[in-house]
Design a protein around this nucleic acid. Structure first.
Lengths: 126, 126
DNA sequence: CAGTATCCTACACGATACTG
DNA sequence: CAGTATCGTGTAGGATACTG
């Protein structure tokens, strides 16, 4: 019902479990959540405001995925109104530093990328 | 026609152009293409077989995007049958090393991630 | 060989409403 | 406050056929 006709034998991420983790930490909101938590711990709504533009659904999903992977620690206090704090585990801190490092590398090289694009686009607009 | 109602003021990647580049290099096929080209240059079909499971469409698209960003050099020889070689630029080599470094970090920590997942899943199956 | 063009589907994601 | 449940849509990406 879903594989339809089975394209290749090993395809799909099934071939490489780490591919999924890579996707989790480099996902649109994953990067930003890790970056935010690298600074300090946050509560849910606080994190939502800080990251900016993320829907409740996606933030919850991202946090759950990262928690399950062992990157984020969820600390729920049994008070009313509820209070839940999110922070990085040691593993998560390392992950955050890695992706943040990559993100910063991209930013540092952004000028060269822009120039490459300009050249590329111009070459076919002529 | 596409923004519908405008959710947030700065949202969408428009706020951060480097976010797009990050997506290009960490994309499903982007990572694998960069990793392959880190070894040596490849021809189109050769690369397709090496990466494994990628459709012609996606490989072409990935290569074009990476070329436009200045990471991949496309060398087309005017012979018959056509011969096109793809290789990394210096910028692309750096990018490849960065993402490959991240990918390897994930692999190194994969056991810890698996254990975290096991613990997480067990805690709610009980 | 090295692609492009077309069609089609699954799912990622956002919006909204609701709950403990 | 901190989420879940549900619905609707855009688009990433696969299959296939065709071209220079």
């Amino acid at each position: 019902m879903s594989v339809s006709k089975m394209s290749a034998p090993d395809v799909n991420q099934s071939m490489c479990p780490s591919r999924l983790v890579l996707e989790h930490v480099t996902s649109r909101w994953g990067v930003l959540v890790l970056a935010a938590l690298l600074e300090r711990s946050y509560r849910f709504s606080e994190l939502r405001r800080t990251v900016g533009g993320v829907s409740e659904k996606m933030l919850a999903q991202t946090l759950r995925t990262l928690e399950r992977d062992g990157f984020v620690r969820r600390d729920a206090q049994a008070v009313i109104p509820p209070r839940v704090d999110y922070s990085l585990t040691e593993l998560g801190r390392e992950a955050g530093e890695q992706v943040w490092g990559l993100a910063r590398w991209v930013e540092r090289r952004m000028d060269e990328v822009s120039e490459a694009r300009r050249a590329y686009d111009e070459a076919r607009t002529s």
